[in-house]
Each structure stands twice: as structure tokens, then as C-alpha cells.
């Protein structure tokens, strides 16, 4: 009896730890390592395709798809891939997934894929995906890696959509294509152009830092 009791107790503690670990990984991408603000990677799409909220969301979703699947495949193969050629192997896996996404988007979301243009093939060189493969998927089991992919991917999608919302409302006076301001509102065309993208992202990063500081968190910013 005593043996069984101790066994059961042990088991529940173990599952509890496991669930806690999942929760931690799941929440990680939504604040602690939210790209591109906290984890300063993947800036190019964050600047380039966020001239409207819809484009930002579409890009975020495409990246999430690649990220989740690449984390899954790489973590399943992590014992098979030799250490020396791991980066090249990761790139092959990621590139294959990106080709799949490219074809799916051309088939089902043609307009969006035309607007995103060369930034869909460029998901291959998005540092977030390679970064997560190297930092997380190559040393954690498959279920945890998938959760990490989902979490970072959702965090990235939220960031891109947020930047898109700010730039679209100020730069074009619309939100998801629907006009939201009074008639005669003159939008700042500057916001949907290149300088607006940089400045908008910089100011948002500053605001997030200010919030972290106000909450008393340690600033995990990439310091120069």
C-alpha cells in the first residue's frame, strides 16, 4: 500500500511539474520573449509588411505555421542530425516548409500572397525560426517544442498585427480596410512609408520598455 501511495504521489508531482513547464513555455512567447520587441529578431517582415493590419496578421500566421512545423520536425530529428551540419539541415527543413506555405498561400489567399510578395520566400531567412530551432527545438522534446512554436508564433502575430493597426489607422485612416475616422480626416501618408515603419516600431519598443520598467521587470533588451 505504502509503495503505491508513494508512487502515485510521485507521479502527480511529476505531471504537475510537466504542466507547469508547458504553461511557462506557452506564456513565454506572449510577453517574456515576445518577438520582435523582447526578442529582437525578425525585424524585416515586422517593418515591411505591416503597412496594414491585414498584411501583418497574414504574415504572422504564415510565420507561425512554418515555426510550429519546423520546431516539430527539428525536435523529432534532433538525435539524428549530426552536430556539424545542423544549421544546414535546419535550413533545408525550413526552406521545404516555406515552399509549402508559398504554394498554399497562392492557392487559397492569392491577393494576400501578391501583397506580401518576396517576403513570403524570405521567411526562410527570418532569424526567429532558425533562432528557435537552435535555441529550443534542438534540445527539447517534440511536444514542448510545438508549444514553444505556437507561443512564439502567436506572440509574433500579435506584434505584427499591433504594428499594422497603428500604422494603418494613422497612415491610411482605416482599420482592416474599413474607414474609422470622420470625413475629411487627413491621414499621415508618412506612416505607411518606410520611415514611419522604423519610427513606429522604435516608439512601440520604447513604450514596452517603459511598461516593463514600471512593472519592475529587468529590461531584457538587446543592449548596445
Amino acid at each position: 500500500m505504502r509503495f503505491w501511495r508513494s508512487f502515485r504521489k510521485k507521479k502527480t508531482v511529476k505531471t504537475d511539474i510537466y504542466i507547469m513547464k508547458f504553461k511557462k513555455v506557452l506564456l513565454n512567447g506572449l510577453w517574456n520573449e515576445m518577438p520582435p520587441f523582447k526578442l529582437v529578431l525578425g525585424l524585416c517582415p515586422a517593418l515591411a509588411v505591416t503597412s496594414s493590419a491585414e498584411n501583418g496578421l497574414g504574415m504572422g500566421m504564415a510565420t507561425t505555421f512554418v515555426l510550429v512545423l519546423s520546431n516539430l520536425v527539428i525536435s523529432l530529428l534532433r538525435k539524428v542530425i549530426p552536430d556539424k551540419v545542423r544549421i544546414a539541415s535546419y535550413i533545408v527543413v525550413i526552406a521545404t516548409l516555406v515552399v509549402i506555405v508559398e504554394m498554399l498561400m497562392k492557392a487559397y489567399f492569392f491577393n494576400l500572397s501578391q501583397q506580401l510578395g518576396i517576403f513570403i520566400p524570405l521567411i526562410v531567412v527570418n532569424c526567429i525560426i532558425l533562432g528557435r530551432a537552435e535555441a529550443f527545438a534542438s534540445r527539447n522534446p517534440a511536444p514542448l517544442s510545438v508549444v514553444d512554436g505556437v507561443s512564439i508564433g502567436i506572440g509574433y502575430s500579435i506584434s505584427l498585427t499591433m504594428i499594422g493597426i497603428v500604422r494603418e489607422t494613422l497612415g491610411a485612416g482605416t482599420l482592416f480596410g474599413v474607414p474609422i475616422f470622420w470625413e475629411g480626416f487627413e491621414p499621415f501618408a508618412f506612416m505607411v512609408k518606410a520611415p514611419g515603419a522604423f519610427i513606429c516600431l522604435g516608439v512601440m519598443l520604447g513604450l514596452m520598455n517603459a511598461y516593463s520598467r514600471w512593472r519592475g521587470e529587468h529590461l531584457v533588451q538587446l543592449q548596445s
Partner: peptide, 12 residues
């Protein structure tokens, strides 16, 4: 603003 934030604004 230190670090990346000011760098982005500068780039803008």
C-alpha cells in the same frame, strides 16, 4: 529608449 529602440527611430 536605449539600445534597439533609439536605433530604430534613428533609422527612421
Amino acid at each position: 529608449l536605449r539600445g534597439t529602440a533609439i536605433a530604430l527611430i534613428m533609422a527612421g
